[in-house]
């Protein structure tokens, strides 16, 4: 298998796109300090998986998997596999729920911290953490 062959690259086009999207999404999640941008990255990441599933169900030359109205089934017609599409409907719903919950959390974070930038929040938290974790006085607590 020559992974540089044009045939290979074009033949797996949907996977390339899937990987590019996935990495873009993950990169945004990791690198961006803005919480909303993190959620956007997460969305892109999830969408890539939706694309992956949807393209997986494609059967070459297949048509939309809709049962003929007249009820006569023609075995010569190839249909795409509908199951991954159905699955991904569920995943989309989950994705929407996650996004909305994430955004709701961001609103609450902004109320409490007056910022949605990770570095500001971290500084605030670190100062609290350090004052909390001062050593105990000498009465038995120290090890």
């Amino acid at each position: 298998m020559n992974i540089f062959a044009t045939e290979f690259i074009l033949g797996h086009l949907n996977y390339w796109l899937f990987i590019i999207l996935m990495m873009t999404g993950l990169y945004i999640v990791i690198s961006k300090g803005n919480l909303v941008k993190k959620i956007v990255g997460l969305n892109i990441f999830q969408t890539s998986v939706f694309m992956f599933y949807i393209s997986m169900g494609k059967v070459s030359g297949g048509t939309a998997p809709i049962f003929p109205l007249d009820g006569v089934y023609d075995p010569s017609i190839a249909y795409s596999n509908p199951l991954p599409h159905v699955l991904i409907l569920t995943a989309i719903v989950v994705g929407i729920a996650t996004t909305s919950l994430g955004l709701a959390l961001i609103i609450r974070i902004r109320e409490e911290y007056h910022s949605i930038e990770e570095e500001h929040i971290t500084i605030l938290e670190d100062t609290v953490f350090q004052t909390e974790n001062l050593p105990l006085d000498g009465k038995g607590g120290s090890i």
Partner: peptide
Amino acid sequence: KRALTAAFNYLIMGTIGATFFVIGLGFLYM
């Protein structure tokens, strides 16, 4: 208030974890 950022971080990581799980299932399904 740090519960909020804890929940948010868990949301990000948990979602990545769950999505990885789905990707894995996709491979197995293929």
